[in-house]
């Protein structure tokens, strides 16, 4: 209870400080350069030169400290030893490219990068196309979208329960093994199954991201002019042909956006692997690998190097995003 009060208090304080800054700084500016005085015109001009930076100040400072500085600092760290004191040149990179854990992480990450965005977009597209055609589609959408609200760790618990395994002679309480046994198979420890366990982990992220893909693609599908669909009906196309040849080509742009958004997410994914296997049984990924070196290996140099590899993988998407944004502006 006491902590709740502290929380409420600090919340009020934080928000208040923020509001006070914006109000106070603008007020100050108006006092220094009054708009109603002998030099009104000059004052307004001067105030207008300064005011944008009052608005932007906190954002620019925070972005710099929390995102720009870390990128530069990571580059510096990657050239230094475990505590960041001695300069080691490219040793960390040499170590990294020779390390088995890194090779495994890269292989798995590439697998994730191919499978998860593809599967999520695919299922999302199917779900969007189907739910748009039925009366209770909105309810269905809402339910498919729901996992989006669940934390990765919560989702991991949910799926670990599904993958649960018991000895062959007792009843299975994990749904997947229960089905396998009912079909006459032998129960498996799914998350310890080499190579395939990666896919069982990916299922979790696909399960979460399909709803996101569906919502966006559904909006895009609804944005397609109805007449083009009717024209295709008159041209004799069947529903599948209409979907593949008329609708999908018209929403390629949106599909690309969904795909890249999920790709970025996949690169950062860490919670699922940490919770399900902690990188054991050949499921290591870059984000968890980095976490390992940071907290268990306590080697900031190596961890920073791994982080830079993740960064390098998103740079192409970053450039593409900036280009797209500038095209709009």
């Amino acid at each position: 209870m006491e902590q709740l009060l502290v929380a409420l208090g600090s919340m009020a304080l934080g928000v208040g400080a923020c509001a006070l800054y914006f109000w106070g700084s603008n007020r100050l500016l108006d006092l220094v350069f009054p708009a109603r005085s002998a030099h009104a015109a000059a004052n307004i001009r001067r105030a207008n030169l300064i005011r944008p930076w009052l608005f932007l100040g906190p954002a620019v400072i925070i972005l710099t400290v929390y995102l720009v500085y870390p990128v530069l600092n990571s580059i510096w760290l990657s050239l230094h030893g475990r505590t960041g004191e001695e300069f080691v040149g490219l040793d960390n990179y040499v170590w990294l490219f020779g390390d088995d854990g890194f090779r495994e992480s890269i292989r798995n990450n590439l697998l994730w990068l191919v499978v998860v965005p593809a599967a999520s977009t695919f299922f999302g597209l199917i779900a969007a196309a189907l739910t748009d055609r039925i009366a209770w589609g909105n309810i269905a959408k809402s339910l498919i979208f729901m996992p989006m609200a669940i934390s990765f760790i919560g989702a991991s618990v949910i799926w670990k329960f599904i993958y649960d395994v018991r000895a062959a002679d007792v009843e299975q309480i994990g749904l997947l093994n229960a089905i396998v046994v009912a079909l006459g198979g032998a129960p498996q420890a799914w998350i310890a199954l080499p190579f395939w366990n990666n896919f069982f982990l990916m299922v979790i992220l696909i399960w979460i991201q399909t709803g996101f893909a569906m919502v966006i693609l559904s909006a895009a599908l609804r944005g397609i002019p109805e007449e083009t669909v009717e024209a295709a009906v008159l041209d004799g196309a069947n529903p599948l042909q209409i979907f593949l040849k008329i609708k999908v080509p018209q929403i390629w742009g949106t599909i690309a956006v969904v795909w890249t958004t999920i790709t970025i997410l996949v690169l950062k994914v860490f919670d699922i692997v940490l919770a399900m296997t902690n990188g054991q049984w050949g499921t290591q990924v870059l984000a968890n690998f980095m976490f390992d070196w940071m907290f268990r290996g306590l080697d900031f140099g190596r961890a920073a190097t791994i982080a830079l590899v993740i960064m390098a993988l998103v740079v192409p998407i970053m450039i593409w995003n900036i280009r797209e944004a500038q095209k709009d502006a």
């Binding site: 932007l56 620019v60 972005l63 400290v65 929390y66 995102l67 720009v68 500085y69 870390p70 990128v71 600092n73 990571s74 760290l77 960041g84 970025i264 690169l267 950062k268 860490f270 984000a287 980095m290 976490f291 940071m294 900031f300 961890a303 920073a304 791994i306 982080a307 830079l308 993740i310 960064m311 998103v314 998407i317 970053m318 995003n321 900036i322 944004a325 500038q326 502006a329």
Partner: peptide, 23 residues
């Protein structure tokens, strides 16, 4: 600044952990 904001959207936050922790 707009370009910078758009670019920063995709920066993996793993990047920031160690520098910030040290800071």
């Amino acid at each position: 600044l707009v370009a910078m904001v758009v670019g920063l959207i995709v920066v993996p936050l793993q990047m920031s952990l160690i520098p910030l922790l040290r800071l």
